[in-house]
Amino acid sequence: MKQVNIRSAKNLVMTFLMFSATVAVLIPLAIIFIHIAKMGFSSISLDFFTSIPKPTGETGGGMANGIVGSGVLIAMASAIGLPIGIFGAIYLVEYGGGKLSSIIRFAADVLNGIPSIITGMVAYTLIVVPMKGFSALAGAVALALIMIPIVLRTAEEQLKMVPNSLREASLALGVPLWRTTFRVTLRSALKGVATGVLLAIARIAGETAPLLFTALGNMFWSKKLTEPIAAMPLQIFNFAISPYEDWHRLAWAGALVLVMFMFTISLATRYFSRQRN
């Protein structure tokens, strides 16, 4: 009887410890979100979306150039990264199965684990050095390198889930495999693939380290893709480590916008995957 009591007491204690660990994990989340919401909502204004940063000492200003810059960088990175990721996934699912596909899968996983700052260094040596200058293009290449493995692996997962009978039905009607892939396989996996793309975009939208010495940042509007370009994460970084209260407020507002963007994407992916099931 006593034995049982000790054992159940131990059970209770351990259960309580697991519960405390969970609470301890969730507390920082709550604190960070409360701060972002509190500081962000009190700092944000219409100005934030329409004007560029003011010089130090002047109040106001916004991150309009950073928002547009991030948009440009994401669009360019997607233009480079999505075809590679999606076509790579098509190869793995439709033609793969051999040793080569496991090597490619492994390479993608390893690529995914490489610190993003190294991606930035590689983009620097490949683009910035030969073109003799920091540019939006170099930033986009760095972001694309981060995007590719994420898109590849999620798209592969989604294409694999398309039932083979669908493909066979199309092939039996004499449709060549490539048209089958576009018209049947990709189309029925579209929502899943889109989810993967959105996740990849959410990931690169917040990346700062690979942009430090590729896109570099810009206090003004940039007119060419071969010029340094502003990006929201870079602005948040530079303003956060500056000593100026006004810039801190801009950084908080930027953080709020970025987190809201992530939140929207996360909700969208949830909506997509629920619809599919």
Partner: peptide
């Protein structure tokens, strides 16, 4: 889902919170 949210916050925002708060 909440823990995944924690993973989705960009590094620079952790830094912002870390250095200012």
């Amino acid at each position: 889902a909440l823990v995944e949210l924690l993973a989705a916050i960009p590094s620079v925002i952790y830094g912002l919170w870390g250095v200012l708060v």
